[in-house]
Amino acid sequence: MFDTQTHKDNAVESKATKIECRDCQVYYGDTHAIKDVNVDIEDKTVTAFIGPSGCGKSTFLRCLNRMNDTIDIARVMGSFKLDGEEIYDKRVDPVQLRAKVGMVFQKPNPFPKSIYDNVAYGPRIHGLARNKADLDEIVEKSLRRGAIWDEVKDRLDAPGTGLSGGQQQRLCIARAVATEPEVLLMDEPCSALDPIATAQVEELIDELRQRYSVVIVTHSMQQAARVSQKTAFFHLGNLVEFGETGQIFTNPEDPRTESYITGRIG
């Protein structure tokens, strides 16, 4: 029932571990939202987090660039290592971390500025461009990587909020790419988009794999199957199963994974 053929060229080629997570716990106030999660996220790989709503997959994703710091009641414990460095170390500045670990959100959230300024925002605050020409180049490169350059190159001064939903999301991806991150976190990037826009974004994610380690949270199992090489299945705050995407979808080890996959796909 699954077309695993599409994954054959991606399969089983061991890559360097980018982020290593050990015994991770997250509490929201009194709620234990993430329990004992261990995951290795590989470089130049798309890793998908799947699971039913409220299983903690988005919460876990937000731990990877310390976005949970902005929520007062959230507490994170355990070890998260990016290239061997503990990201919850006291010496680590979340600002620097987030430049390395970029994020794209569920709902496209372009700033109410021009398309150019949206993309240039990251490079500007991190001081990546020496001059205007440099910045122009970064913006163009990022928009190209976001696969939206052709659509907006004539109206870079137009407000980013005026684009269609799919374009907005690709703009947000371009914006995230512009800071030269090493890891790109995507929190259900296609859930607010129509099927055509979804297809475009998925194609883009596949391209991005060439350069970045991509982690994507998704509701849709077809999407996980289409874009990812590794899949992690979360359930009630536990990581139930983690492995090759093909493996998880065709031959899950855990009965919960199987019932989730079959129940949904039916």
């Binding site: 460095e85 170390d89 500045d93 620097q96 490169k141 190209r144 696969a147 052709d150 030269e180 883009l204």
Partner: peptide
Amino acid sequence: MTDATSSGASPTTKHATSLLAADDR
């Protein structure tokens, strides 16, 4: 989609190499 790969010079690594030490900026 071809743009995305064709324009790709290797990422200029301007970030501090280590997260543990904050850079000047």
